[in-house]
Amino acid sequence: MKKNDLKSMGKSFTKYILIIGALLILLDFTFHRHEYFSFAEIYGFPAFFGFVSFVFIVMLGKWLRKFLMRKEDYYDQ
């Protein structure tokens, strides 16, 4: 097996996911997406919501480490 299998896999995965993402956004322009709440019908709203939520979760989680993270043997001390 090649050494950089994982790297090339990552690259092609990124490429395909970006293509799918672009198609999903383009698809949004071709029909009217019905949602329960009118503001969610804005073009690409779920995509935007997904992206922002994900970044927010990771960033807030990272920040919470300051308060919640202890050494591995914390409870054994």
Partner: peptide
């Protein structure tokens, strides 16, 4: 859309080294 763009967010965070690395720890 939600899922694919959340994955794109993950790739973005990894690319710019913003995704937190795993640390041996206890979480309260």
């Amino acid at each position: 859309q939600l899922l694919v763009f959340a994955i794109i967010a993950f790739l973005f965070l990894v690319k710019f080294k913003l995704y937190p690395s795993e640390i041996r720890s206890t979480v309260l």
